[in-house]
Design a protein around this nucleic acid. Sequence first.
DNA 1: CCAAGTTATATCAAACCGATATATTTATTC
DNA 2: GAATAAATATATCGGTTTGATATAACTTGG
Lengths: 185, 185
Amino acid sequence: MDIKTTCLGVLMLGAASGYEIRKSFEEGPFSHFAEGGFGSIYPALTKMTQEGLVTCTAHQQEKRPAKKVYQITDAGWTHLETAMRDKIPGEDKIKSDLLFMLFFADWQSPERIARVIDARIAFYQQKLDEMADCGTQFDTISGRSLVLGYGIAVFQASLDYLVANREAFIEVAGQAQPPLLHAAE
Amino acid sequence: MDIKTTCLGVLMLGAASGYEIRKSFEEGPFSHFAEGGFGSIYPALTKMTQEGLVTCTAHQQEKRPAKKVYQITDAGWTHLETAMRDKIPGEDKIKSDLLFMLFFADWQSPERIARVIDARIAFYQQKLDEMADCGTQFDTISGRSLVLGYGIAVFQASLDYLVANREAFIEVAGQAQPPLLHAAE
DNA sequence: CCAAGTTATATCAAACCGATATATTTATTC
DNA sequence: GAATAAATATATCGGTTTGATATAACTTGG
């Protein structure tokens, strides 16, 4: 799913500016399964306007730069529908600097391991609170509410694992010396 | 964590070829938290050889192209250590075409929803089997074994949620018509 | 004995990311 | 009440990454 299609998905919930689309990826209803920064969103919106997948209306504001509000068109909906149909979606793509770091916990200091785990525990607790709040707005079950539930389930599992294994991670930390590469081989 | 650093991490487990590094990302011990294709791995290895972060030994084979085996150097280890130290790691980056699609389940056919969910359930079951096997090789607890456990916990939560909500997803499917955009606004 | 899959490296255009620049309003702190 | 920080808002650009493609020989199963 490329950035264009992802933006169209956000616009299905209502007209929005580039800035608002970005927020959807960072803290909104798409935040636990989509990514995208300004550097990809703005060019995508410009190109889609040219292609007729969205329309752009400039809302003049007194002294701020004009807010450009984008709205999905019928052609945009067709594009979105085509992208979602037929093909079985591929594996989720996950990049985790935390897990990469914890993989090598043995070579790091217990203090550092404790710090990064505690930070992540706090993050998940806050995120889960926000998501629970967000869930109260649904009175009927929908794809949207079920996908939110999925995110909550996965984040909760991550949080639980970190809480349950915090001590174990700290215990393995510092147990290995920085490797003597030539000796090891 | 850029592709260079990620490759160095793989090489910490032992010397490997570009092809083997790729396999680590696709099915090996890094597969649930790292990504990278040939198009990024080969250039990264070439550049790191020039920079002295890895050494390259060509293992001549009779009629195949020479297998280039890369080994991390002391400078490489220093680079890896520096990248992992100090900074609190940022949020995990997750891109899920499945969740994007399920978000709009209401507009899709129940048959399609059933098909994609069943495919993902089968995928997680197989992956979890493999990971459980992989776990038996650890006789002591380490960063590596704990990170594997993390992956298992998260994948299990995903699987459980899909199994528990398969019927709910299918029920919401087809309940909405393709939106009449102009009428809606 | 043939098709399909695995091992193995390599390139390239297109897409994407992260950092940076700019400018005003709103909120918070001293 | 002034100063500082944070939020709103668009935009660009260099560097990195992705995904597709090419090549070639060996291995495995039917």
